[in-house]
């Protein structure tokens, strides 16, 4: 589903990623852990085609991203701290805009379906800049799910959401055997939600393995060890 090979990224003289290799299969969830500034968000943005890597290749659903970025984008969605919503537009207008861009069929039905599932149906006519942080995050997730992407990239999706919202959201994003790559600081939640885990520090992946058979205590120990190194 997703293959990344030799991903490097520099911003001027600052090297952010130093050669990342990743492979995530269809339906798998990969959780990426790492301290602030490790390069997690940059890696997600590169996988989402929002940022071009300085070197390396990404293949999504057998589509080489460098050659066919627009085709690859039909299969993916990115959710970050930025909601990508226009504050002056209503929630419905925002979702309608993105639906038209993605050429979603039966737009009003799809918007209502997602609004119901994510619990903001009664706020569809409100302007996005009047919503709370948590509600904006839910609308942002609905925006990302409009075109039923096969790959969902989530940058700390649990931030700004309460426990109940996280559980509800997780059930929705995992629908349709979707492949998910997420970053999080929450080791416990990340471990419980994923099939694979990676620890990224200083632009390098220090550990990449299945989550099966690893305890929370072990991952905490490994994390501290790699981050300190």
């Amino acid at each position: 589903m997703v293959k990344a090979k030799g991903i490097r990224k520099s911003f001027g003289s600052k090297i952010v990623l130093r050669g990342i290799d990743l492979q995530v299969s269809e339906g798998e969830t990969l959780a990426i852990f790492g301290p602030n500034g490790a390069g997690k968000t940059t890696l997600l943005k590169i996988l989402a085609t929002a940022v071009k890597p300085s070197a390396g290749d990404v293949i999504i659903s057998d589509i080489p991203v460098k050659r066919e970025p627009l085709k690859a984008r039909r299969h993916l969605a990115l959710v970050t701290h930025q909601t990508y919503l226009y504050g002056q537009l209503t929630v419905r207008e925002n979702l309608d805009l993105y639906s038209r861009i993605y050429q979603v069929k039966d737009i009003p039905e799809r918007i209502t379906e997602l609004a119901e599932k994510l619990g903001f149906l009664e706020r569809l006519s409100d302007r996005a800049n009047t919503l709370s942080r948590g509600l904006k995050q839910r609308v942002s997730i609905a925006r990302a799910l409009l075109h039923k992407p096969r790959l969902l990239l989530l940058d700390e999706p649990e931030s700004g959401l309460d426990q109940e919202a996280i559980s509800r959201l997780w059930g929705i994003v995992k629908e349709d055997n979707r492949t998910i790559i997420l970053t999080t600081h929450n080791l416990e939640w990340g471990l419980a939600s994923s099939d694979k885990l990676a620890i990224l520090t200083r632009g390098n992946i220090k550990l990449l393995r299945e989550t099966a058979g690893i305890s929370e205590a072990e991952i905490k120990e490994l994390y501290s060890e790699f981050v300190k190194k």
């Binding site: 943005k45 989402a48 085609t49 929002a50 627009l70 085709k71 984008r73 039909r74 993916l76 969605a77 990115l78 970050t80 930025q82 909601t83 990508y84 919503l85 226009y86 504050g87 993105y98 861009i101 993605y102 925006r143």
Partner: peptide, 13 residues
């Protein structure tokens, strides 16, 4: 305001 230009860059546009 909410980096929507980046959002558009991830869309098939």
């Amino acid at each position: 305001a909410d980096d929507t230009l980046e959002g558009l860059r991830t869309c098939p546009i």
